[in-house]
Amino acid sequence: MATAFRATTKGYRADLEPHERRLLSSLCADVITLLQNREKETTDTPDSASEDPEFAHFRAEMAGLGGDEPLAAPTDEVLRRLLPDALDDEEEAGHFRRLSESSLRGAKLADLRTARMLLESSPVSIQEEVAPMFGRALNDLRLTLASRLNLETEEDAERVHELALASRSKDSEAFMAEIYTFITWLQESLFSAMTEFLPEEETDEDMGSA
């Protein structure tokens, strides 16, 4: 049985079973594949295959810089949740997506790859500096599972919770619900521990400061 994350002198530590680490790592790999497929989908234009690869690269750069053509939101529900529209207006959102989506995808890929690397060791020990990356990756896994489980309202959340606690004979949905609940517990433990270490600074005069 796993133990949740707790603070140590070097960061945070959780004891996970080998099959739990493998499961989390393979879920990360699934989301990585999904994001990479989206990358191909957004860079492959119908006529780019026949082009000189160097020129295609140059064109991709120009497309990113020019940002004149709006980029349509992904059709896949999970990708829509991981890479959401930033504006209500569809066309404006498409223009912004053209400029920003690849860096958002890149950041998520980096988080997920770091998480896979950290899941290689037992116990899972995470240094302070990489804890946010690991935590964001866990969050992306939860968003992915939630989307697959059609978890959209507080009532749905309740349904998923009940499903996870249900009988031993599990179908794939109940299994996903159980994994979702497991990752929720793990993420909660990590951020409860991380919260303790945040410096308490009163900077609220300047609300937007980053």
């Binding site: 939630a146 929720t184 945040l198 600074e201 900077t203």
Partner: peptide
């Protein structure tokens, strides 16, 4: 949204915007 945890959202607001725990 029903997925993001309260602990997590608070942590994001504190670490990214530099808000106090209370804010």
């Amino acid at each position: 949204d029903p997925v993001n945890l309260m602990t997590y959202v608070s942590w994001v607001f504190r670490s990214y915007f530099g808000h106090s725990k209370a804010r």
